[in-house]
C-alpha cells in the first residue's frame, strides 16, 4: 500500500492547479483543523499555487480542540498563508438551545455543515475554490457528514487512504506533532476516529485495500490474514454509505433526465 510520494505530489499539485484554474479560480480556500488531512492538503496546495493563493479558515467550536487550533495556526505560519479564525459556537449554540439533543453525532454533523456553509460563503466572497480533504478511507466507509466535510469544489485527497496520507505527510515535511496526533473529527472533546469506528486506520485500510483495490470477494479477503468480523463490518460500512458518494437519485420521467442520461463531463468546455 506504500505510495510513490514524488509522483503523487506531482499529480495532485497539477490537479489542484489545473482544475482550479479551469473553473476560473486563482484563489483556493481550505478549512484547516490542525489534523493530518487538511494539513497535507494545504501543503500540496501551497506547492501547487503558492502561499499567496491559499486561504485557510480555522473554525473552532468552543474549546473542543484547542490543540487542533494551535497546530492549524502553526501550519499557516510555516506555509506563510493567510487565515481567519471564526468561532462557530454562537450559531451552533443558538440552534441547539431551541432544538435540544444530547446526541453528539447530531451536534457534530451540525458543526460540520456550519463550517462548510462558511467555506461556501467565503468561496463566493473571495472567488476561491474550496479544497476538499476527505480521504479514501473516509469516503469508502462514509465517515463524514454529507453536505458537511464531504462537500467541496475539488478533492485532491479522495484516492489516498488515511495511512497513505500519513506517508505523504512525512514526505512533505508536515510537523511531527500533527503526524503523531490521534485522528479526530472533533465531534466532542477527546473524541478519536479509531475509537468511534472501532478499528485502527491500519486495519481499516488493509481491509479496504483488499476489497476495493484488489477486488477480493469477502470470502477471499477472509481467507487472508484478516479477521472475518472486521471484514464483514467494513463491507457493511461501504454498502451502507453509497448514498454519501453520489448525487441523490432523480425520479426518471422524460426521455432525458439529469443524473440518468443527460451526461456531460465536469470539465465541460474547460
Amino acid at each position: 500500500m506504500k505510495i510513490n510520494c514524488l509522483l503523487v505530489t506531482k499529480v495532485l499539485t497539477n490537479f489542484i492547479r489545473e482544475e482550479s484554474h479551469k473553473a476560473g479560480f486563482e484563489q483556493n480556500i481550505i478549512g484547516l483543523s490542525g489534523g493530518l488531512d487538511s494539513t497535507v492538503c494545504s501543503y500540496l496546495a501551497v506547492k501547487a499555487v503558492g502561499p499567496q493563493n491559499l486561504f485557510a479558515l480555522i473554525m473552532p467550536f468552543k474549546d473542543y480542540d484547542q490543540e487542533g487550533v494551535r497546530l492549524a495556526e502553526e501550519v499557516c505560519k510555516i506555509l506563510g498563508i493567510n487565515f481567519e479564525k471564526i468561532d462557530i459556537s454562537p450559531q451552533i449554540e443558538a440552534y441547539f438551545s431551541s432544538h435540544l439533543t444530547d446526541n453528539p453525532v447530531l451536534r457534530g454533523n451540525k458543526m460540520a455543515r456550519e463550517r462548510m456553509s462558511i467555506l461556501y460563503d467565503y468561496s463566493a466572497r473571495m472567488k476561491a475554490m474550496i479544497l476538499g480533504t476527505s480521504n479514501k478511507t473516509e469516503l469508502l466507509i462514509g465517515y463524514g457528514t454529507i453536505h458537511g466535510d464531504l462537500a467541496c469544489g475539488i478533492n485532491p485527497m479522495g484516492d489516498l487512504y488515511k495511512t497513505q496520507v500519513g506517508q505523504l505527510a512525512r514526505y512533505l515535511g508536515v510537523p511531527e506533532k500533527i503526524l503523531k496526533r490521534k485522528p479526530t473529527a472533533g465531534l466532542w472533546p477527546g473524541q478519536t476516529d479509531e475509537d468511534e469506528i472501532g478499528l485502527s486506520y491500519e486495519e481499516l485500510d488493509k481491509i479496504l485495500f483488499r476489497l476495493v483495490d484488489e477486488r477480493m470477494t469477502l470470502e477471499e479477503a477472509i481467507k487472508t490474514d484478516l479477521e472475518e468480523k472486521k471484514v464483514r463490518q467494513v463491507a457493511e460500512l461501504i454498502r451502507k454509505s453509497e448514498y454519501k458518494r453520489k448525487m441523490p437519485p432523480v425520479a426518471k420521467l422524460s426521455e432525458r433526465t439529469v443524473g440518468h442520461d443527460f451526461l456531460y463531463p465536469y470539465d465541460w468546455g474547460k
Binding site: M1, K2, I3, N4, L7, V8
Partner: peptide
C-alpha cells in the same frame, strides 16, 4: 489516463 501509484522508485504511473 495514468493509474497506479504504489511503485515507489518510478517516475510514472
Amino acid at each position: 489516463p495514468g493509474r497506479g501509484i504504489t511503485d515507489e522508485g518510478s517516475q510514472c504511473f
